[in-house]
Structure formats: C-alpha cells, structure tokens
Design a binder for these strands. Structure first.
Length: 441
RNA sequence: GUGAGCGUAGCCGAGCGGUCAAGGCAUCUGACUGUGGAUCAGAAGACCGCGGGUUCGAAUCCCGCCGCUCACCCCA
C-alpha cells in the first residue's frame, strides 16, 4: 500500500470545478466572439519558453516573478511564459512571411511567482488581442474599441479605460528635469496618484530625493483635470518645445478622434496623464481599465510596444494590443451578480432515467436519439428508484428528466418532467426532443 | 521581498486551562420499491495544521515550523 499524502495545490494555483467553468466559459466565449468580430484570429504558443526569450523584456520588478522550469534531463534553460506579448513577438520574428498587419488573439494561462491575494493568482488566464505591423492610431483606437465592446457585452457599466502615452510621460520627465534612474521612481510615484493623493505623491518624490522645484513643476502638470479632449491642448501648451511630448500628445489626439465614430462612449474612457503601466516595453499609447466598485486593481492593461519585436529580429515592427484579465472580470461579475440567470450549474439538459432492466435497450436507443437531435443528455447508470434518480437530477440542476417505464413503452411514449416547473407531459418518444426544446431547456 | 491576521470533520463554526470537542450545511440510510427540491428519524465523519515547551491537566497559554488570507511592492 503506497503511503497516502494530503492532497494539496501549489501556492496560488486553483482547481476550477464544472459549475465555475461554465461561468468562465461564458466570459471567454464572449471575449472570443468580440475578438473574432474585429478580425483577430487565434494563435497558440507553448506554455514553456526558453528563458532567454523572456529575460530582459519586462524590467527587473517583473523579471523576478518569472517561473523557472526544471527539466530532469537536457540542458535547455526554460521558463513558464509571463505574458502573451513576448511570445507573440517571438512568433512574429520567427515568421517573417506573415501578412501584415498580423492580428491575433490568444486566450491562455500565464504564470507569475507572486504572493497571492485578492484578484491575484500564480496561474491565470489572459485574453490578448494584438495588432502587429501598423503604426496607425487606428490600430490603438481599435484595441480600445475591443475592450469597450467586451465590457459592455458582459454587462459592465461603471468602469473607466484610462489612456496615456509613454512619450508624454517621457516629456514630463524632461520638463521636470528628471532623468535616468530617478525617472522610474518618478513614474511609480505618479502612478499612485489616485491611491495616495497629490500630497502623497509630493512626499514620495521628496523622499526619493527629487528637488523641491522639480516636484512643484511636476505636481503642477498633474493638476490638470477635465474632459479628455480639453486635456490634450492644455498639456500641449505646457510642454511646448519638447518634441517627444508633442509627438505623444498628437498621437493621443488622433486616437481619441476615432473613438466616437467607432462607437465608444466618451464616458467609458479618460485621458489620464498620471497612469503609467509597469512593464518596460511600452513605447506609445498605454491603456488600462479599472472598475469603480470592487477594489480589485485593473481588469485590462496594454499599450503600444514598437521596439519589442526588434529584440528578436533585425526588422522592426510596430505593435499594439491589450490584455483582458478574465480572472478579475469573473471575480467582479461574481461579486456583483452579473452573470445571466440562464446559466445553470450544469450543462446537462436531460437526465434519462433507467426504469427496469427489461427496458434498458429501448432506453438507450431513446437517449441516443435525443443526442442525435442535439440535446445534452446524461443517462442514469443504475435502475434505482425513480425518487432517487429524480433527486440526483434535481441536485445537479438538470432541467428535464425523461422517464421511460412500462406504461410509456407500451405506447411508444416517454414522460418528460420539467424539474423547474414540477410539471410533466407524456409524449411520443419521437416528439420528446421537440417538447424539451419548446419547454425551454 | 515586507507587514498583519488566521488554521477545530468535505464546508461554515462554538468552545478560549478541567469529564466522552457544541451546532448548522453537505453526505449516507429509512419513513416513501412510478416522481425531486420540503419535513421527520437515524448513521457515518475530527492525529482540534505539524513539532516542541509550560502545567497535575492544553483545542485553549508560550516558542518554532508549515499552510491560508489580507495589505504593501508590482500587476490581470
């Protein structure tokens, strides 16, 4: 007898049982449908990458969290993918004959060795849509439209997609006279604005050893508030004479100008010059979505990364895209009761009861015919009491039960019981599927 | 990586130094061998996270370890 061990999961990892998988699949299918409607096509890449593919792309903070993979034999240095953008970049570099723009979506797990907490797991799915090969702001606007469409379709109402541009942030750095190492600290402090407030940011910058007059200039810039369309000219005035900032602001102006005609409500997004994004590889417009109600961090994040692919290729490719964070979306939808009531705990539509061994063959044939007609049918394997079999159907949440006993068999009939309504009808076996359909399986 | 809180049956949870460790949900059986969700009766299920210490006596107090949760950092 082998020694028994207590079953446990690795830290931060979860099993997802069928009732939760049903909700999850609903969200994923909604996202996939939207991606496909915008012309994105599926891509698969391995969960494991060569370590060299991942290293040096994300920045030191993120790189610490990359999962090592140990191999019993062989000498390749391997790691679990940290996101889906870097693998995509690798794919593009390895397939130079791809027709551009290359629009791909990928819905797949990624791994990060973080300390788990609310809305944060070590294995989680990302739903990415990216456009490689176009520098047009139309591409960025389309990504934001995709985010908007997904969230609206899932029933989100109180959320904001924040939009900023790395070039503008670089311009703010120049304007403030902060360079090199200190710039990172500057960004990080700026990013906390909505959490710690302007005074908090001021203190952080002071603690980081940034000069008082620089802080004053910075804070002055970040005070600018207002409608997205008004913010851009205002910032243009203030950062006049800084080319990188002018470039970034012009990009934002173009991007915003497309959104209305693309069907995105102005209330769904906001230019926010204090939004930063952590990853190193962003170069242009950046975006992230936060929900107002449960405090859970961002549910989408992305941006333009025009220099990433050239880390794998002599050829440069402009690229932009977003991640939609399905784990947090599900957490929020769960908390707010946003799932449609039509989603059940089970996918099974009909439980075919077994009545008597002498009727087994006819019962099997009947179950088969229901399946042939497209219904999801479970067969009860034991000829136990009707009571017990119905109890099973009820507990599992199956909406219909089919009872085929001697009385029914004699007439070529079957009794269809609607477990939700507690009503039943005895009909011809050949009509059963139709009856179930009309009754609302 | 830093800090805080918490570990009692599959789940929730009372007990907070003194006989056999409450209760609820879930599970199983029966009342009810052609009709579920309700009710009633019964059954099974616990190295009280692990190890050490204090004490006549520890689930309860102390220490260490492990695990979980939350927050920070950062992020989906």
């Amino acid at each position: 007898m082998p020694e028994r061990i207590t079953p446990r999961l690795p830290r931060g990892m979860r099993d997802i049982l069928p009732d939760k998988m049903i909700l999850r699949d609903y969200v994923m299918n909604t996202i996939r449908t939207v991606f496909e409607q915008f012309g994105f096509e599926p891509l698969h890449t391995p969960a494991v990458e060569l370590a060299e593919t991942l290293m040096g792309k994300y920045g030191p903070d993120a790189e610490r969290l990359i999962y090592d993979v140990r191999q019993r034999q062989g000498h390749e240095e391997l790691a679990l993918r940290y996101d889906l953008s870097v693998p995509l970049s690798r794919v593009v570099a390895m397939n130079p004959d791809l027709l551009l723009p290359f629009k791909r979506y990928q819905i797949a797990p990624v791994w990060r060795a973080e300390r788990p907490q609310k809305g944060r797991y070590r294995e989680f799915y990302q739903c990415d849509a990216d456009i490689v090969g176009s520098a047009s702001m139309l591409a960025d606007a389309e990504i934001i439209t995709v985010i908007y469409t997904v969230l609206e379709r899932l029933g989100f109402r109180r959320y904001t997609t924040r939009i900023n541009n790395r070039k503008v942030l670089a311009g703010i750095g120049i304007y403030s006279g902060v360079e090199g190492e200190a710039l990172g600290q500057l960004y990080r402090s700026i990013d906390k604005l909505d959490r710690i407030g302007m005074d908090g940011v001021r203190k952080e910058l002071r603690d980081a050893g940034i000069a008082e007059d620089v802080i004053a200039r910075m804070v002055d810039l970040l005070q600018i508030r207002g409608a997205s369309a008004d913010l851009i000219p205002e910032m243009m005035r203030r950062l006049e004479g800084i080319p990188i900032a002018a470039e970034g602001l012009a990009e934002l102006r173009d991007l915003i100008s497309y959104l209305d005609a693309m069907g995105v409500s102005p209330s769904a997004y906001q230019i926010d010059f204090s939004m930063v994004r952590g990853l190193d590889y962003y170069t242009g417009p950046i975006y992230e979505t936060v929900v107002e109600e449960p405090k859970i961090g961002s549910i989408t994040g992305g941006g333009r990364y025009d220099r990433l692919i050239e880390m794998f290729s002599e050829r440069g490719y402009p690229a932009t895209g977003t991640t939609i964070g399905i784990e947090r979306i599900i957490d929020v939808m769960d908390e707010l009761g946003m799932f449609p009531s039509s989603l059940r705990r089970t996918l099974v539509e009909v439980l075919v009861l077994q009545f008597d061994p002498s009727l087994l063959a006819e019962t099997l044939r009947f179950a088969h015919s229901l399946r042939e007609q497209g219904l999801r049918v479970e067969l009860y394997f034991e000829a136990e009491s009707v009571k017990k079999q119905l109890r099973y159907a009820s507990r599992k949440g199956i909406p219909f039960a089919a009872i085929l006993g001697p009385d029914e068999a004699a007439q070529g009939q079957v009794t269809i019981k609607n477990l939700d309504l507690g009503e039943q009808r005895t009909v011809l076996q050949s009509e059963a599927a139709q009856v179930i359909r009309e009754w609302g399986a």
